[in-house]
Simulated scan of single mutants.
Amino acid sequence: MQPAVNVLLDSFVGVNWGSSNFRAYRIAADGTLLDEWSQPSGVSGLGREGMANLMNQLSDRWPNHGSVYACGMVGSNIGWQEAPYVEAPSNLKDVARASIGTTIGTVPVRLVPGICCEREFDGGPDILRGEEIELFGLASIRPDWSGLVALPGTHTKWARFQEGRITEFFTSMSGEIFDKLTASGLLASIVDGEAADGPEFLEGVRQSQEHQLRLGTLLFGARARVIRGLLERKHSASYLRGLLIGSEIADALTIYPQLKGNSIPLIGNSVVCKMYASALTSLGVRAWIVDSREACLAGFRALHVATNS
């Protein structure tokens, strides 16, 4: 009789596979990163054959890879197979139970479902897919944490976490709006340089809090400021970013007024998170940053344990 195999003692693989990028982590049983591999090969640019080939390459790179978990758009209706959303409020066990076993290429994979919610404050719907791993990673790193969490990025998520459960969230597209506005169109003509924290950025944040004018008018006002010599072209990207991030934070403060005077963790890229942290600090909210990769590794390990316990 063969002895039972304890998969919790083996290394495993976590894959964050979005619409634009593929990131894979080989993780030791204790959560230590053993190796990582990334490709600009999101599911939106790959057919089924391309996705299968990429997973076969992963298997060639890590022949004894152990269990493989994949989150993100690979489990969406444009990915390999749809893993239906779990309804919030939900905890890690709920997500683990709803994961779907499949085979991509020659590799057995568990597809991680996203989470959907109906927001308490307005009854509106929202969805996330991929961020749940980072959120549960934070819960693993800080099991005592309850409150609001932000994941700054192209589509920033503001999620409410309570006793290990994601209860509700809302999404802001301010990152994508900034990218589009500064790449083409009228405002692109006034932008010269990258956005950065500083006086112009914080002025944009301040302007967004006034509530005298809405965002559409404030954004055009950035062009008027440059044309009239009130804003240097090299600082216009920072001002625009301040308007957008500030408007997003204004929404968060309206929805969760208790955030004022409290603290919030920010999960993501350090450069973008630092701008959010600066904006929040200027508005009386303390912020601390959790590296996205650290949260991912902790989240995948927690998922691995939850799936096999």
Rank of each mutant, 00 (worst) to 15 (best):
G105E: 04
E118C: 14
I115T: 04
G105L: 04
E118N: 15
I115V: 15
T106R: 11
T106E: 08
V95C: 10
V95I: 15
V109S: 06
C117T: 15
T106G: 08
T103Q: 13
I127H: 08
E120S: 14
G101E: 10
G114W: 06
L111M: 09
V95D: 04
C117L: 13
E120L: 12
V112Q: 02
F121V: 13
G123P: 00
A96C: 07
V112K: 05
G124R: 11
G123R: 08
V95P: 02
I100H: 04
R119E: 09
G114T: 11
R97M: 05
R110F: 03
P113F: 12
C117F: 10
E118W: 08
G105P: 03
P108V: 12
V95N: 08
A96M: 03
D122R: 08
A98L: 07
P113N: 13
G114Y: 08
V107P: 02
I100E: 06
C117P: 05
D122S: 09
F121W: 13
L111C: 02
P125Y: 13
S99Q: 07
D126T: 10
P108W: 11
V95A: 09
R119T: 14
C117E: 13
I100Y: 04
C117S: 14
D122L: 10
I115S: 00
V109W: 01
G105A: 02
V112E: 00
G124D: 11
G123D: 05
R119P: 00
P125C: 07
I115F: 10
E118A: 14
A98M: 08
G101T: 03
A98W: 07
